[in-house]
């Protein structure tokens, strides 16, 4: 172990900036160099990378940057995780990963702009996100959630004609005896807070910021 925190290291600042800039090659190199210098993977992630994603999320919320920039930053983050991920223990992971979320736009619905934004903001705020895309069949959500042992299933629905499929999801989870295993969270233009409550869904978000707040709350985190 080297002396002094990794955050005082110049390379940490390089990594931080490379993630904000969405430069995956530079991020990867900086992360590897830091590892080479003997810093712990967990410290690198917590001190250099997570704060960078937080800044990216905030900039997007203020519309100073746009969707592609956030995607590139998330890519850069993931490029580093390829190397750092295997070097940390599962319990260490829990220190910076807020939770695992499986997200998608429900069956028959191809509106995915809002869902993409929510997925990115969750990522930027420390969630591990599995994005299944749009027009996702009900059982696919459950299959993936079981496979990755997710904490939350998040569903986006923009059409009134999508809503029956969310009810199907709740029903199927109940029938499979899995309802208590995953938290459910919904959003998108067709959904209202009252409707979510009525069909027995515990999480609702009006926008991406609320989505993050609610996800944290569902997992008992701040």
């Amino acid at each position: 172990m080297v002396k002094g925190g990794v955050s005082e290291e110049q390379l940490c600042k390089v990594l931080y900036k490379a993630i904000i800039d969405g430069d995956d090659a530079a991020s990867e190199k900086a992360a590897l160099d830091l590892l080479g210098k003997g810093y712990k993977a967990l410290d690198i992630i917590k001190s250099c990378m997570v704060p960078a994603m937080k800044v990216v999320g905030d900039m997007f919320a203020r519309l100073e940057i746009f969707l592609p920039e956030v995607m590139m930053s998330a890519d850069a983050f993931e490029a580093c995780m390829k190397h750092l991920g295997p070097k940390i223990l599962e319990e260490e992971r829990r220190e910076f990963i807020k939770g695992k979320v499986v997200i998608g736009t429900i069956q028959g619905d191809i509106h995915d702009l809002g869902k993409n934004i929510v997925a990115l903001m969750l990522k930027a705020n420390g969630f591990e996100v599995y994005d299944l895309g749009r027009d996702v069949p009900v059982d696919e959500f459950i299959k993936k959630a079981r496979e990755v042992n997710a904490d939350i299933i998040a569903v986006s629905a923009l059409l009134s004609t999508s809503l029956p499929y969310i009810k199907d999801l709740v029903k199927l989870l109940n029938e499979l005896g899995l309802r208590d295993r995953f938290k459910l969270m919904v959003g998108g233009g067709a959904v209202t807070r009252e409707w979510a409550r009525k069909v027995g869904v515990e999480g609702y978000g009006e926008d991406a910021e609320e989505a993050v707040r609610v996800a944290l709350k569902l997992l008992g985190k701040k």
Binding site: Q107, G108, L159, S160, T161, S162, L163, P164, Y165
Partner: peptide, 18 residues
């Protein structure tokens, strides 16, 4: 606008109700 229900049946995407 469109209809979210016909004769009390919720309209689902791609079902005959559409």
């Amino acid at each position: 606008g469109g209809l979210a229900e016909v004769k009390g049946i919720e309209v689902r995407t791609r079902s005959p109700a559409e």
